[in-house]
Amino acid sequence: MHIPDGLLSMPVIVVTYAIMIAVVAYSAKKLKNLPENKIPLLGLFAAGIFAAQMVNFPIIGGVSGHLLGATLVAILLGPYAAVLIMTAVLIIQTLLFGDGGITALGANILNMGILGAFLGYTVYTKLKGINEIVAIGVASWLSVFLAAVLAAIEIGISKSLPFGKVLTLMASYHAIIGIGEAILTIIIVQAVRAKLPEIGGVPA
């Protein structure tokens, strides 16, 4: 779901970059108390998300999707660490691998990182009292679905095009891709917790 160059108008580029920079700076401030021994873990999660995003899984109709992972990381390490990790991943993807446009980096970090980190974390926290698996599944599915809706809105504001069609296509594809996200997030969160029971959180 990496938005390329040429899809966003100047106002949308400016606004999304401004929000992204503000939230990344705020998250960085919140991470000042990050325990020193958690830093390698942060790096490993970032590396893992990068690798996971290389592997697209097929959905219906000759379309594919890949893990976003922001909600996954937020559940395990907290939303601020998730913002930092997703920012690092997206910067490398954009600058070195041409995944997503440089003008869309603000929007892509906002959609695929910040939204999933905070919204996914909030939904998970609210639902985990009911059922852990349901909480992880719903939070991660929503993070993909709403990221797609947000991307559609950003593109819709930027371009004169049939907005309803863009929104419907983005929402339908990602409603299905979100199921993949939910399954992968449930499996990975449970596996990491089983292997690293002491993982705890990062100041959230």
Binding site: M1, H2, I3, P4, D5, G6, L7, M54, V55, N56, F57, P58, I59, G61, G62, V63, S64, G65, H66, T94, L95, L96, F97, G98, D99, G101, I102, T103, A148, A151, A152, I155, K159, L161, P162, K165, V166, L169, M170, Y173, H174, I177
Partner: peptide
């Protein structure tokens, strides 16, 4: 096992005729 199919956004772009206009050439793929 990775799929080479277009992702959800690329498929949407194809269907509504949106094209990317790169302003930057990344060194790797």
């Amino acid at each position: 096992f990775a799929s080479n199919n277009p992702d959800g956004l690329e498929a949407t772009m194809e269907k509504v005729g949106l094209e990317e206009h790169p302003v930057y050439e990344a060194p790797l793929d």
